[in-house]
C-alpha cells in the first residue's frame, strides 16, 4: 500500500482532533481535581507564611491574571492544541520514516513510532524531572528547569536516532534475534546513563506537601501523556490500515491513484 504525504497528514490530523478532545476530558475529570487540591494547599501554606511574617514569596500574592475557571479552560484548550500539533508532527515524521520502520503493517509501524515518541518526550523526561502539582515548584528556578527539560527531550531523541543507526549497522552482521537483543541492551544502558548523568532538578519539594498528593498528580499526568501517544499511534495506524483494506477490497473508488 502506498501513500502520498497528503494522505498520511490528513489521517494524522483526523486522529489528532478526537485524541485532543479525549485528552481534554481526561484533563478535566482526572487531573484537575488534583490540581485543585494542590492549589488549596498552596493558598493555605501562603496564608501561614504571611501569618508567620516569613515573607515567603508566592505567585498568587500578585494579582491573578486569570481566574481559576479561565485557567481550567486554558488547560483544556492546551490539551486539544497540543494533541493536534503533535499529530501533525507525528504524521510528518511517520511519512518520512515509514519505509524504515519495523512492523508488517501500518498499524504496527505507527504504534512503534508513537511508543518511541512517548518514551523520548514523555516517559524519560518524567523519570528525570517528574511533573509537579502547583505548590511544589519554585518560580525562581523555572528558567533552569525549562532548559533541563528541553535538554533531556533533545538528548532522548538523539539517542533514539543513534540506536536506530546502530540497529541498521548491525543488520546483516548479526542474526536478527541477536541484533534485537544487542540493540535492546544498548537502549537500556544508554538511557540509564542519560538518567544518571543529567543533573537533578534544583527544586526541593516542600515537606508540608503530602507525598501522596505529589505521587497521585505525577501518575495522572503521565497517564494523560500515555493516552495521547497511544491514541495518536493507534488512531493514525488504524486509519491507514482501513484505507489499505478498502483499496484491496475494491470498495474505494480512488484505487487508481495512491492516497
Amino acid at each position: 500500500m502506498s501513500f502520498t504525504y497528503r494522505g498520511i497528514i490528513t489521517r494524522a490530523l483526523t486522529a489528532g482532533l478526537p485524541v485532543g478532545v479525549l485528552l481534554a476530558g481526561y484533563m478535566f475529570f482526572v487531573v484537575e481535581p488534583t490540581i485543585d487540591e494542590a492549589i488549596t494547599l498552596e493558598e493555605q501554606l501562603a496564608t501561614e507564611a504571611e501569618h508567620g511574617e516569613q515573607g515567603g514569596h508566592h505567585h498568587d500574592e500578585e494579582e491573578a491574571l486569570f481566574t481559576r475557571s479561565e485557567q481550567v479552560g486554558g488547560g483544556v484548550a492546551a490539551s486539544v492544541i497540543y494533541a493536534v500539533v503533535l499529530s501533525a508532527v507525528f504524521g510528518t515524521v511517520l511519512a518520512a520514516t515509514r519505509h524504515r520502520l519495523p512492523g508488517r503493517s501500518d498499524l504496527m509501524r505507527s504504534v512503534w513510532l508513537a511508543a518511541v515518541a512517548f518514551g523520548c518526550v514523555a516517559l524519560v523526561p518524567a523519570l528525570k524531572y517528574p511533573a509537579n502539582p502547583p505548590a511544589v515548584g519554585d518560580p525562581d528556578t523555572v528558567g533552569q528547569r525549562t532548559v533541563q527539560w528541553l535538554v533531556v527531550v533533545a538528548l532522548s531523541l538523539l539517542l533514539a536516532w543513534a540506536l536506530t543507526r546502530l540497529s541498521g549497522l548491525l543488520r546483516g552482521r548479526l542474526d536478527d534475534p541477536t541484533r534485537v537483543l544487542a540493540v535492546t541492551a544498548a537502549t537500556v544502558l544508554a538511557f540509564g546513563a542519560l538518567l544518571v548523568a543529567l543533573p537533578g532538578t534544583p527544586d526541593e519539594i516542600d515537606q508540608r506537601v503530602p507525598a501522596a498528593l505529589v505521587w497521585d498528580f505525577r501518575l495522572r499526568s503521565i497517564g494523560g501523556l500515555a493516552l495521547l501517544w497511544s491514541g495518536l499511534g493507534v488512531g493514525l495506524g488504524w486509519l491507514l490500515e482501513r484505507h489499505g483494506r478498502r483499496v484491496m477490497d475494491g470498495t474505494d473508488d480512488r484505487t487508481a491513484a495512491p492516497a
Partner: peptide, 9 residues
C-alpha cells in the same frame, strides 16, 4: 496555560 503546563508535565 498554567493548568495545561502542570498536567502535561
Amino acid at each position: 496555560f498554567h493548568d495545561g503546563r502542570h498536567a502535561l508535565g
